[in-house]
Structures are given as structure tokens and as C-alpha cells.
Design a protein around this nucleic acid. Structure first.
Length: 250
DNA sequence: ACGGCAT
């Protein structure tokens, strides 16, 4: 199924357990752009839809609509993006209510995931919406630079900063070990987090102080390096595998 | 601990 020798870079990965199902969210990037791969795994079987990055915010909106469901029966929705159409449809069977999300891309390739409604506001559709919203926010924090130069980005009003921070750091670790290119770091507004970031001093030609960041049970190493293509920041993490993140977060 | 969809 999956292409083993993929050149696509993983920017963010999250997973969500709903009832007996596990959903995997992978924000990836290749030269054509970014996309979100959403997979569901249930007792061996697995299905996947691919959402172009521009569609994530619409998915947040649509899942909000279904999760916040007022009294009347929610209607089916369609979302057209690039060359695909996504169909959203609420159904019910003996096991409960669920949302069927189908992707149809031409010529006639269809894939579907089934998202259980869940029993409370913060599970099922609501939890799904929250994960999508986090990924959307994180995607905006991550900037990949084609020329390998360092830049920092001033952001304001970012909630849940530490959660987003570790996502960004994971990305940086992956990208710098892969091709030596750089990922800019968002500057958190929360004091505790700000102090842990490497400092980039533009007055001294972008000198970076190496540091170690501990977040939860993870450890990240920040090191400044340089090669023929310029200066870069290497950020290493002890356990860089997506599947292990998911196990930890469950 | 499911399992839906639909080929």
C-alpha cells in the first residue's frame, strides 16, 4: 500500500482512539505541497483519505458542524478541493451513529473512513475536530525554507503552546537529519517554553546556542552546524517514530 | 470489543 521509498517529509503526526478504532493523522510535505493523510485502523483493516492542506480548515469546520449537532438531523455535505470531492454523510446502524467521509478523486478512485459519533462532546466527532484544529494550527507554525537559512517567526495568541511546540520540534528533528535543511521555530509567548528554545541572535550572524529541551518524557538536542549550503540548526529527538508517539499519547 | 461504507 504505502510507498516505501517516499520522499515525503512528515511534519506532524497525531493519533486518536475512538471506541475500538484508531485514527492516524499525518501532515506531510513533498515538492508539490502539503497534505494531511487520515487513516483509520480497526482490527487489521485500514483505510485512508488524503486531504490537501487547504482542506484542513474546511474539515475542522465540517466536523464542528457534525459534532455540535443541534436537534435537527445533520445534512450531508460535499467539499470540493482541487481535483477531489469529499462526501460527508451521517448514518446509523445497530452499533451507533457514525460519519462516513468519502474521498472521490478522478478518475473514480474512492476511499472512505468511518468516524463514530462518540458519546460525549470531547470524543468521537468532537475529538476528531480538535485534532484537525491542532494540526491546522501547527501547520501554520511550521515553515520550511528552501535555501537552508535560519529564520524565526513571531507569532501571537497561540493557545496550547507546549503541545504545538513539541510538534514543531519533531518536525525540525526529522527534516534536519534528512537533508540538512532548516525549519524555523515559532517563538512561544509562554515564558517557560520561550526559555527552552535556542536563541537566534541576528546581530551576530545568526549564532545559535545549543541547548537541551525536555518536554514530557522526550528529550531534544539543539545544535548549530554548517555545511557548504550554509548554517543550519540540528534538532535531535530520542524517539523519532510516529508509532511510538501514538503509543505514548494513548 | 466492536463495526458501519461498498467493491
Amino acid at each position: 500500500m504505502d510507498v516505501v521509498h517516499s520522499t515525503d517529509v512528515e511534519l506532524v503526526c497525531k493519533c486518536l482512539q475512538v471506541e475500538h478504532k484508531t485514527f492516524y493523522f499525518d501532515l506531510k510535505e513533498n515538492p508539490r505541497g502539503r497534505y494531511l493523510k487520515i487513516s483509520e485502523k480497526s482490527s487489521g483493516s485500514r483505510s485512508t483519505i488524503i486531504v490537501p492542506v487547504a482542506g484542513i480548515v474546511w474539515f475542522v469546520d465540517l466536523f464542528s458542524y457534525y459534532a455540535d449537532g443541534d436537534d435537527r438531523e445533520p445534512s450531508s455535505k460535499e467539499l470540493q478541493l482541487d481535483n477531489k470531492v469529499f462526501h460527508f454523510e451521517v448514518r446509523e446502524n445497530a452499533k451507533g451513529r457514525f460519519l462516513k467521509v468519502s474521498e472521490v478523486s478522478l478518475p473514480s478512485i474512492r476511499s472512505t473512513i468511518i468516524v463514530p459519533a462518540g458519546n460525549e462532546a470531547d470524543e468521537g466527532w468532537g475529538a476528531f475536530r480538535n485534532v484537525l484544529a491542532e494540526i491546522h494550527e501547527t501547520s501554520q507554525l511550521i515553515v520550511t525554507l528552501p535555501d537552508g537559512s535560519v529564520s524565526s517567526q513571531q507569532l501571537s495568541g497561540t493557545p496550547e503552546l507546549l503541545g504545538n511546540l513539541s510538534d514543531v520540534v519533531d518536525t525540525a528533528a526529522y527534516m534536519s537529519s534528512r537533508n540538512g535543511k532548516l525549519v524555523s521555530q515559532a517563538r512561544p509567548l509562554r515564558d517557560g517554553a520561550t526559555n527552552l528554545l535556542p536563541s537566534i541572535n541576528h546581530d551576530t550572524g545568526g549564532l545559535i546556542t545549543a541547548r537541551v529541551l525536555r518536554a514530557k518524557n522526550k528529550k531534544f538536542y539543539f545544535d548549530l552546524g554548517s555545511n557548504a549550503r550554509g548554517q543550519y540548526l540540528r534538532i535531535s529527538e530520542v524517539v523519532p517514530y510516529c508509532s511510538i508517539y501514538c503509543q505514548h499519547s494513548l
